[in-house]
Design a protein around this nucleic acid. Structure first.
Length: 733
DNA sequence: AGAACTATGTTTTTT
DNA sequence: ACATAGTTCT
């Protein structure tokens, strides 16, 4: 198989092809990051051009006639790799086609398909992502004989954690126990049962999750001497971006890859580590020098992105961090206005204010795609999305739901996945469930019949359907037979699937199939860019396109406002940035526990604020509506409260309110329901108090383990940790 | 019994 | 928008 690369020049130019300037480094720094060999660590603050140092290094190597195929570039997103390769190409005038560049996971995928035989790992595997959780749960439940029974296990959250690899974190079990409100001992036992089954399940069906890709890659390097020799002589130069976001496995892979020659350059900023929930460990960056003796360290502290007032505020945010590499960013950029801190009456007022600012900035001549609105969680922008839509402002939303996570896209992908890997029961499950009159039980029977066949497709064709669904079943097997014929372009296979799937689909999603149909058309555009299905299926799991991006791909690429979660905004910058929802309880996230989690939330705010080049707005609503329609007052985020008010200008009650406030409260709203529980300030519960729970019965409060949580020892059900936002708890006497 | 339908509840962040 | 629980239909 031809190695599949991530060439910069096969892709369209990045959206902001601004000429790359070497001025961000002084001559000494430039020499330090480009010349010489051996391990090199660049510790750099936000906006200091750290990614550019990697581009310079790569360009320098190419100019020294280092063969491009001996360079391996590892980045956090594929987009970042593409942009860096493109820029290095611009600098050198050379093609960077043959540089291997991409995320750890995508690179692992390529290498495992090339070298997998060293591990006895065939190339017939499918990569699963969190969109597969639902199917995995169903199949696990039936294999555990739990179908219908307990709703608790395997819960989606547990399976999501298993898939995304966060399971490597020691804290995971504690974290899950909190959320599931379950007794620890039972939970751990069930948890181990589930993870054992999950492992076996993946093995049986040729599925690899995110962690497996890295585990196998490390295994390849650690256990096969020949593979390690081959790989480390193939890649003489390793370049790693965003090193603070690597996990243990990734750090180990870098170490093994570079163990022969030590030519590794890593770049990162410990203050921007925001992925520990996924297993990232910013201590990796601190340990780098120990792992690679003779490491040269370069510190970049000058910020070229933001104006002085913005920088002063961001420095203040991070100054309160408990643990950090001491680093104070400075800029020689003069002028700039102070960031604005805006308190709005409620979420609707906040949304109106934000939309007003956007319109005003546009009138001032700022391009729409130079403005971004950032927030902690995907749903925090819902109100704003409505407001923007009503004003006719188009936007791209990043983060939140991915295109490949919607049900109809998953359905479609399932067909391609069984073509590539006919033992992928997860996808069979999805396809067969689409048949009318066929439910989970019948699917189990069919799967049992084809599971051990050498040719599952033939076995399926030979299956005897019940009369009720015979006709549709035969259409299915016929479609599958024609899909398997050789020499078809992916786009043709797409059309073939659609002739079968379209009627099914229109029936299943009768209420909104035109909208979904549009998204399927976008998938056709995506798929026609691929030479083979394998590549397409891998890419959708490793780097799922988001809805907005696919939209832009299908239509005209006009400038659009960006709405993004802070996590998805990493590494990007805009002229004007508005960070919304900075209210206590929203930011930091209410589940964030004191200590490391809380500190990560602080770094998250730091990342958000440092995205701004010239204008920064921080907004929060003074009132939030709870799920049961109660209006709760809320304060500003504690991260903002601890900052000296001299660093920002304050706007009380946002600008032009275009509608009377009452419009936020529909008049026909029923009065708030009296709650059966006593939802309360945590302070109301105290140790020793007698309480009653709708399901668990009577018990006694044993402790208050965290905000909004109580541990109760129930007379009949033992000890439980309950979350007061959900639990229906009443104080008795 | 199993499939299909209806009502209700929930949603951190993601390669 | 989706998952789940409970209910009704075949």
């Amino acid at each position: 198989m031809q190695p599949r690369l991530f060439p910069g020049d096969e892709q369209p130019a990045p959206p902001t092809p601004a000429a790359i300037s070497t001025e961000v480094l002084n001559p000494a720094q430039y020499a330090a990051v480009t010349h010489g060999s051996g391990p090199l660590l660049v510790i750099a603050g936000a906006g200091s051009g750290k990614t550019r140092t990697l581009v310079f290094r790569m360009a320098h190597l190419l100019e020294q006639d280092v063969p491009p195929e001996s360079i391996l570039l590892l980045t956090f997103t594929r987009r970042a790799a593409q942009e860096m390769l493109w820029r290095a190409g611009q600098l050198t005038g050379q093609s960077c086609r043959r540089v291997m560049g991409g995320t750890f996971h995508a690179t692992a995928n390529i290498l495992l398909r090339q070298y997998g035989h060293h591990l006895g790992l065939g190339s017939g595997f499918t990569i699963i992502d969190r969109g597969d959780a639902e199917g995995i749960i169903n199949l696990l439940k039936s294999s555990l004989g739990m179908s219908g029974a307990g709703k608790r296990f395997p819960s989606k959250r547990v399976v999501l954690n298993l898939i995304s690899g966060a399971i490597n974190k020691a804290t995971t079990i504690d974290d899950l126990v909190f959320r599931e409100s379950i007794h620890l001992a039972e939970f751990i036992q069930d948890f181990h049962t589930i993870s054992d089954h999950y492992r076996q399940f993946k093995r049986d069906h040729g599925l690899l999750d995110y962690d497996d890709l890295l585990v196998f890659w490390r295994q390849l390097l650690a256990e096969s001497d020949r593979a390690r020799e081959e790989l480390s002589s193939r890649f003489q130069h390793i370049l790693v971006d965003e090193y603070q976001d690597t996990n243990q496995l990734q750090a180990e892979i870098v170490r093994l890859l570079a163990s022969h020659h030590g030519n590794v350059m890593a770049v990162g900023d410990d203050a921007q580590s925001i992925y520990s929930f996924r297993g990232a460990d910013f201590h990796n960056i601190m340990r780098f020098a120990d792992q690679f003796p003779g490491t040269r360290i370069v510190k970049l502290e000058e910020n070229y992105r933001s104006t002085q007032p913005i920088l002063q505020l961001t420095n203040a945010i991070i100054a309160n961090a408990e643990q950090k590499y001491a680093k104070t960013l400075f800029t020689s950029t003069e002028g700039g206005s102070r960031p604005l801190l805006v308190a709005a009456a409620n979420e609707a007022a906040e949304a109106r204010y934000v939309a007003d600012v956007i319109e005003e900035r546009r009138r001032a001549g700022v391009a729409l795609d130079e403005i971004a609105v950032l927030f902690r969680s995907g749903f925090h922008s819902f109100k704003l999305e409505i407001e923007l839509a009503s004003r006719g402002l188009e936007f791209d939303k990043r983060g939140g739901l991915k295109l490949t996570e919607s049900a109809h896209i998953k359905d479609l992908l399932a067909f391609f996945r069984v073509l590539i890997n006919p033992w992928d029961n997860l996808s069979w499950n999805r396809i067969l469930l689409q048949l009318e009159k066929v439910g989970p039980k019948t699917v189990q029977k069919i799967l049992a019949a084809i599971r051990d066949a050498d040719d599952p497709l033939a076995a399926l064709a030979a299956y005897r359907p019940a009369p009720g669904w015979k006709a549709q079943f035969e259409r299915l097997t016929d479609t599958l037979r024609r899909l398997g014929l050789p020499d078809q372009a992916p786009a043709d296979q797409f059309d073939l699937v659609m002739t079968y799937y379209e009627p099914v689909f229109e029936k299943m999603y009768y209420d909104d199939y035109p909208r979904r149909r549009k998204e399927l058309d976008q998938v056709r555009v995506l798929i026609s860019g691929y030479g083979d299905l394998q590549a397409f299926v891998d890419d959708t799991a490793l780097d799922p396109p988001d809805v907005g991006a696919a939209d832009a791909l299908g239509g005209e690429d006009e400038q659009r406002l960006i709405l993004s979660t802070i996590h998805s905004a990493k590494g990007l910058e805009w002229d004007t940035v508005l960070v919304i929802g900075l209210a206590d309880g929203r930011f930091p996230h209410q589940n964030a526990q004191p200590g490391e989690q809380y500190e990560e939330e602080r770094r998250l705010l730091y990342v958000a604020a440092t995205r701004a080049k010239r204008e920064l707005y921080l907004t929060y609503p003074k009132e939030l509506v709870t799920p049961d329609r109660q209006h709760l007052r809320c304060a500003m985020s504690p991260f903002l409260r601890e900052i000296s008010p001299g660093l920002y200008n304050r706007v009380e009650r946002a600008g032009a309110i275009t509608q009377p406030l009452t419009s936020d409260y529909p008049i026909d709203l029923p009065p708030p329901k009296p709650r059966t529980s006593v939802p309360t300030a945590p302070g109301e519960y105290a140790e020793g108090m007698r309480v009653s729970h709708a399901f668990f019965g009577l018990g006694r409060v044993a402790s208050l383990p965290g905000p909004r949580r109580v541990e109760v020892v129930f007379d009949r059900h033992g000890s439980k940790i309950l979350h007061l936002d959900y639990a229906r708890l009443e104080i008795v006497g």
